[in-house]
Simulated assay, not measured.
Amino acid sequence: MTDIRRIPVAGEGFRAYDVVVGQGLLADPVHWIAPFLTNRRLVVVTDSHVGPLHAESLTAPFAAAGYRTDVITVPAGEQSKSFDCLKVVLDALLDLGLDRKDVVIALGGGVIGDLTGFACAIYMRGIDFIQVPTTVLAQVDSSVGGKTAIDHEKGKNLIGAFWQPRLVLCDLDVLKTLPEREIRCGYAEIIKYGLLGDRAFFDWLEANDTAVISLEPEALQYAISRSVEMKAEIVAADEREGGKRALLNLGHTFGHALEAEVGFGDVLLHGEAVAIGTAQAFRYSAASGLCSGEDRDRAVAAISHAGLPTRMADIRNEAFDADRLVHHMAGDKKAEGGTLTFILVKTIGDAYVAKKVDARSIRDFLVTDGAVITETV
């Protein structure tokens, strides 16, 4: 049994909270969650996949302790980050009669965390929620920092709000129910932290990626805790992504364009898109003379060694349209005044925000780099 880690997230303009990382946290959910429940009721939002696995173990101890318990279930998948599912959640909260002192639990991956957080941000102008992330990706990324959103047909996460949780419970044991593909998707966000700001962490991941992906407790605990520590530090300095926080989007401008092009679903999961996007950010940085070819090759090799895709050809063995991809990038939240913003790299562990990137240079890179392809490379 690994030690339980408490990682504080604190910054100007929002109430501090803890991210708790450890094994067996949901074995005693009343201990962790009850102190935040002013009213003696537990309302859980989950999805059709996670609910049957974990909802009963979360709610039963509260029911035994005399709490009213209710579970709101939406369909599993990225498609639930929609206006339709947002209305389902809001209607259910209203039907349950929640008031502004109630707390909602988000039990699931990034989709549930984003959807529930946004619903809580706008319900009665804001009620508290607690994140109980059940995927690696959600534990190291989307559950921490207060970015909540739903998708729009024009792009991912375009409708949302900053709304910090009261608590984040990262129980390592729930990850055992994940398929390997989902674990690897979470690892894409873990390695991103080393590549953007901690070369020593990246070095450690190179040597320990198999242990992390295999969910070996000590390696997993360190990888998730270090990722959360880095995100907490960045969020504390820049909650609303006015500067440094944008670094967390390494790989995301390329990645979100791919997701928009192939459709948000199982063809390309978010972590896989981030993996491809991060590799492309290193390739573009090297092609632009910003980082060395050695660092590019090392970063791409580390992503590939973890069983993640590094090119669009790994996802779809047919041509992508470079102009369409650039068009998707122009709709990215980081775009300003019609110009593109990317997270680029000087070296492994040293990323920076590059504004006003020439769209033509991105298009030319996508073509000459082989990212727009007709056969697998």
Rank of each mutant, 00 (worst) to 15 (best):
V74I: 05
G97L: 00
I303R: 05
G22C: 08
G197R: 07
R184L: 06
R41W: 02
A161L: 03
Q164Y: 06
S225Q: 08
E153N: 15
G145Y: 12
A237W: 09
C120F: 01
E78D: 08
G338T: 09
A371F: 15
G251K: 04
K231L: 08
R311D: 15
P35K: 04
I234M: 09
R360D: 14
A299L: 02
L269M: 15
V104I: 01
C120D: 09
V274M: 03
A354Q: 09
R296D: 07
I7D: 07
A188K: 01
A299Y: 11
G194F: 08
F282H: 03
R324N: 11
L340N: 06
F254H: 03
L172D: 12
I127S: 02
T116F: 07
L269P: 14
F282Y: 07
F282R: 02
E189S: 12
A302S: 15
E239V: 05
G251W: 11
L196N: 05
T339I: 11
I127D: 06
D350Y: 09
L247M: 13
L26W: 08
V228N: 11
I4N: 09
P8E: 00
A273M: 00
G113S: 04
T347V: 11
G145L: 03
W163M: 06
L42M: 11
S57I: 11
A301I: 07
G145Q: 01
A16T: 02
V136A: 14
P309T: 00
R245C: 10
F320Y: 11
A121R: 01
E189D: 10
E336D: 15
K87S: 15
T347N: 13
L290T: 07
K346L: 14
S285D: 06
Y67P: 01
A260Y: 10
P165E: 09
I130L: 09
E182V: 14
E259N: 07
T210G: 15
A121I: 03
P217T: 03
K154A: 15
R40W: 12
S80C: 08
A138F: 02
K81S: 12
I72D: 00
V9D: 07
G51L: 00
Y123R: 00
Y284Q: 05
G197V: 03
A279E: 01
A301L: 08
L58V: 13
C120S: 11
E78H: 04
A232C: 05
H252L: 02
G338P: 03
D364V: 11
L205I: 01
L42Y: 09
T374P: 11
D321P: 08
G243P: 10
S214Y: 14
L258K: 04
E259W: 04
M329K: 03
D3S: 14
K244H: 15
L308A: 09
S227N: 08
G11E: 02
F202M: 00
